[in-house]
């Protein structure tokens, strides 16, 4: 890969290591982020996502490795890099005695180039809150405000650290819209998350991180397709359907019995498993009460790659 990078990589990370004492929070990761994509880092808590992100943002000093952002060396040109990136920290707050407009104006002053506060607030639908303080906002509004604050310098790259953690589904949905809009404006977005559906919905490419290492990196579709069993067939059968019969079906690699009373078949090829299932049901006089084929999710990818679930 070295020396053969496409010119439109906005972030290049090579051999990044961050150690705290003996613990390697980030244990030698390398990846690139392409201009204009939404790049996701997916992994459980403690996988090293935030540490990796903060190294790239210039907030933590790497133990080893090279980081280039927008063609600049992070160590050498930290200030120029910081002028062109927007950073949202996980669970961070803002000054409690300043209004939203005052905070955005203040942060704007830290940059050579900045966007008027009211423009930013209207972008995240907080115009009518311009004169209130952060403490009086709801959780969703607060997250929207922190996103507005990342845009204060009209950045080329936006970093979002678990932007939707702790939000209810509706607020999460609305935040996804804002993130997509940032992306449509031509900015590169790098976000961390431990929600697969978020990564699947927002990201063009996803790096799956576990215990400080990147275990896979591709588009969500490719990641799922690369699974030995990219499909899941859910079967609710009446009568005395046995696990053994299902396990013997074509392309089935495993059968689980869910708490909902359904069988879950992991299939390498649903197009071959389904006819076999129907024939088997017919022959063994089993009535199929419910049949559903789903693609596997990133959750399954994670389980396959690491041997443990994303959230445990």
């Amino acid at each position: 890969m070295k020396g053969n990078q496409p010119p439109d990589d906005v972030i290049k990370v090579e051999g990044l290591v961050k150690r705290f004492g003996t613990l390697a929070a980030v244990d030698g990761i390398s990846f690139s982020v392409r201009r204009g994509e939404v790049f996701g880092i997916l992994g459980p808590n403690g996988a090293g996502k935030t540490t990796a992100l903060e190294c790239i943002e210039g907030l933590q000093k790497p133990t080893a490795g090279q980081i280039q952002v927008l063609g600049m060396d992070l160590q050498r040109d930290a200030e120029q890099v910081k002028a062109r990136i927007g950073v949202q920290l996980q669970a961070s707050a803002y000054f409690e005695y300043l209004t939203l407009r005052e905070i955005l104006r203040l942060f704007g002053r830290f940059y050579p180039h900045h966007v008027p506060p009211d423009e930013l607030l209207s972008k995240v639908s907080l115009s009518e809150k311009a004169n209130t303080t952060v403490g009086k906002l709801s959780g969703g509004q607060r997250q929207r405000f922190t996103i507005a604050a990342t845009l204060v310098n009209d950045p080329d790259v936006v970093f979002l650290d678990e932007p939707t953690t702790g939000l209810d589904p509706q607020a999460r949905r609305s935040l996804w819209d804002f993130i997509q809009e940032i992306h449509r404006e031509g900015r590169t977005v790098v976000l961390t998350t431990h929600y697969m559906e978020e990564a699947e919905f927002l990201c063009q490419r996803v790096a799956i991180m576990d215990r400080g290492k990147i275990v896979a990196l591709d588009t969500p579709t490719n990641l799922v397709r690369a699974l030995p069993t990219p499909y899941q067939v859910k079967v609710v059968a009446g009568g005395d359907a046995s696990k053994d019969g299902l396990e013997a079906l074509d392309c089935v690699k495993g059968v689980g019995f869910g708490e909902d009373g359904a069988f879950y078949l992991r299939s390498a090829d649903a197009a071959r498993t389904l006819p076999a299932l129907l024939t088997w049901a017919n022959q063994s006089q089993v009535r199929l009460e419910h049949l559903e084929v789903q693609p596997a999710t990133l959750e399954d990818v994670f389980l396959e790659l690491t041997g443990h679930a994303l959230r445990e």
């Binding site: 210039g58 920290l89 961070s92 803002y94 942060f107």
Partner: peptide
Amino acid sequence: EQKILKRILATPLR
């Protein structure tokens, strides 16, 4: 505690 310092560190402010 509220990561305001870190947020400021993420800007070019010296």
